[in-house]
Design a protein around this nucleic acid. Structure first.
Length: 251
DNA sequence: GTTCTAGAAC
DNA sequence: GTTCTAGAAC
């Protein structure tokens, strides 16, 4: 099976039990969410795609361009359905971020303007873009939130409510306009510093992310220490048998 | 999309 | 000499 058409084969399935747990993260009646096989985030990277049904035939879901060429209101319903399901995946990611790392960091949700695999798929990816699989300039630029190649889901939704001519213009998604964006300089999406090579950029992105993670750890330690002090004060107050002080406002 | 690898960049 | 990129092949 071609690597380019693997997504469509999953999207057409009615019996999901044939998809391994290592591939399928979650699903609804209208969408499947897969673990990206080559994650570009070090932590969370999912692909969400609409399921192929009689009312949503595969000829209209090859990619975003194909979908937007179809009936506008039908296309809107598809995108809105993905947006609804994406919110619940984002919530699951946020819970997992808090549980595993003690803090939340941005999640990017959007389409590639020129996708390299067939069948419409939405990327839901945490912004720590320094995984082992992040190897080339085009990988990074395809997820850079301000580069223009990554089409944020909210932006795509807004096209439907813009003027018809704006919708028509955006819906064209010309390769010739978007592909050159992948070759532009490597710029940190957080601080705009530019880097000559992918390894240098990744080193920087990792350091920035680890700084955020470290801040949380310092805060946690401080809170623990404060809790211990409160305990000491409580013991003393018991010994002296002074009346309980009014409750301290929590910081 | 990835892997492979020649040769550029340092 | 080593690291890294980018184009060809799949």
């Amino acid at each position: 099976m071609s690597a380019l058409t693997v997504l469509r084969r999953y999207a057409a399935k009615t019996d999901l039990s044939t998809i391994p747990d290592s591939v399928l993260f979650t699903h609804t009646d209208t969408s499947l969410t897969l673990f990206d096989l080559f994650p570009k985030s070090n932590t969370f990277h999912f692909l969400m795609m609409p399921r192929i049904t009689p009312s949503l035939p595969e000829e209209h879901t090859r990619d975003l361009r194909t979908l937007l060429k179809w009936d506008k209101e039908k296309a809107r319903k598809v995108i809105e359905g993905l947006a609804r399901d994406a919110r619940s995946v984002q919530d699951m990611i946020k819970e997992e971020m808090k549980k595993r790392f003690g803090f939340e960091w941005p999640i990017f949700t959007g389409f590639h303007a020129v996708p390299s695999m067939e069948h419409l798929h939405l990327h839901i990816i945490a912004s720590d873009l320094f995984s082992d699989r992040m190897k080339h300039k085009k990988h990074y630029n395809s997820f850079h939130p301000k580069r223009g190649f990554f089409l944020h889901l909210e932006d795509v939704l807004s096209w439907f409510d813009a003027t018809p001519s704006y919708y028509k213009t955006m819906a064209k998604l010309p390769k010739s306009q978007y592909e050159p964006l992948l070759k532009e300089d490597l710029i940190c999406w957080r601080c705009n510093e530019s880097f000559k090579t992918i390894p240098k950029l990744k080193e920087h992105l990792r350091a920035e992310w680890e700084k955020d993670a470290a801040k949380v750890k310092v805060k946690e330690l401080k809170r623990q220490r404060e809790d211990e002090e409160y305990v000491d004060i409580d013991k003393r107050s018991v010994k002296r048998s002074t009346p309980a002080a009014p409750e301290e406002p929590t910081p």
